[in-house]
Amino acid sequence: MKYLLLIYGQESDWFNLTPAQTGAMMAEYGKFTEEITSQGKNLGANRLKPVAAATTVRVRDGKRVLTDGPFAETKEQLGGYYLVEAADLDEAVAIAAKIPAVRHGSVEVRPIFAMEQAAST
């Protein structure tokens, strides 16, 4: 059985941390990630960039419609995800526009935080 763990929180909380607090938080994430990885239970994890970097993609009547910002429709629920490699936003959107759900629901495209320095080992 696989489970997707979705992390919710207020972005401002994160931005308001002092460097020391950020460091402590990163260390805690690092420890947790290491723990579940060594148990063979980590199938993949990423930190997302802020919602301000999000773009929502819909296809209606065969036409691609982009909206600046995150998905905000409360009547629809998160039903799955793809983690994809793309050169830039245009390519990511082109891929998103082929997901079948894009014709009746929406697909939010959120860039992933580059984490060369820490945690996601």
Binding site: K49, V109, P111
Partner: peptide, 17 residues
């Protein structure tokens, strides 16, 4: 500022479509 940050963070390409 927000528009420029979005271009950078979302990697909106700088090219002719």
């Amino acid at each position: 500022v927000r528009a420029k940050r979005k271009i950078r963070d979302a990697n909106i390409p700088y090219r002719v479509p």
